[in-house]
């Protein structure tokens, strides 16, 4: 009964027109930096050309390109990971002694001025927020942005980055704690 479709063929000349935007959107959602996303798409096209002869036509052109892009994204993350050092230790709480797990005095949240509330929508706040997000270690920032700004499902992020959910929450927690400290110093109690 099953009728086999004719194998898919590649048209590299049409790639840029047909898939550049699609691939870019795919990449930007994962790396969160338009320059890096563009580079990744470019690399994907080159890699595609290089291995075009290995294309068996079982999947569509687009699926095939996306699978290459996925590899490229993972490679990119690996690179950051090795660059930034695996053991980036950032303590938020006492981790030994009597006060284990409790607030370090200087990091205890301070109350925020009410003034800040009025300005909540203005541009400056957004700029400050961007600055604070950029100051996070890249590893945390990536997970944090994927979860918060792009609003991915936890499961998807875990699969993509190959981490466990509890790992993810710890990273998000650290990112948020750092973010709130940054905002506290630069915005709310300025």
């Amino acid at each position: 009964m099953s009728q086999s479709n004719p194998p898919n063929i590649l048209f590299p000349d049409k790639w840029v027109d047909n898939y550049a935007d699609y691939l870019f959107n795919y990449a930007i959602a994962r790396v969160n930096n338009s320059n890096i996303a563009k580079d990744l798409v470019q690399e994907t096209f080159f890699a595609g050309l290089k291995s075009a002869k290995n294309f068996e036509g079982k999947s569509s052109e687009r699926t095939w390109l996306v699978s290459i892009l996925k590899r490229k994204i993972i490679d990119y993350y690996r690179k950051i990971n090795s660059k930034k050092g695996q053991a980036e230790i950032r303590m938020n709480f006492y981790d030994s002694g009597d006060n284990e797990g409790n607030w370090i005095e200087e990091r205890v949240p301070q109350s925020w001025n009410n003034e800040a509330e009025k300005n909540i929508e203005n541009e400056e706040l957004k700029n400050q927020l961007d600055k604070c997000i950029d100051s996070l270690p890249e590893k945390y920032a990536m997970v944090f942005k994927m979860k918060t700004i792009q609003q991915f499902e936890t499961e998807d992020i875990c699969k993509e980055l190959n981490i466990t959910p509890s790992n993810l929450w710890v990273m998000i927690h650290r990112a948020r704690t750092q973010l709130r400290n940054c905002m506290e110093q630069n915005w709310f109690n300025k």
Binding site: E100, G101, N102, W103, W169, I172, H173
Partner: peptide, 10 residues
């Protein structure tokens, strides 16, 4: 602990 509490809060 506070650490766990804030993680849950996040």
């Amino acid at each position: 602990t506070c650490d766990e509490a804030t993680t849950i809060c996040d």
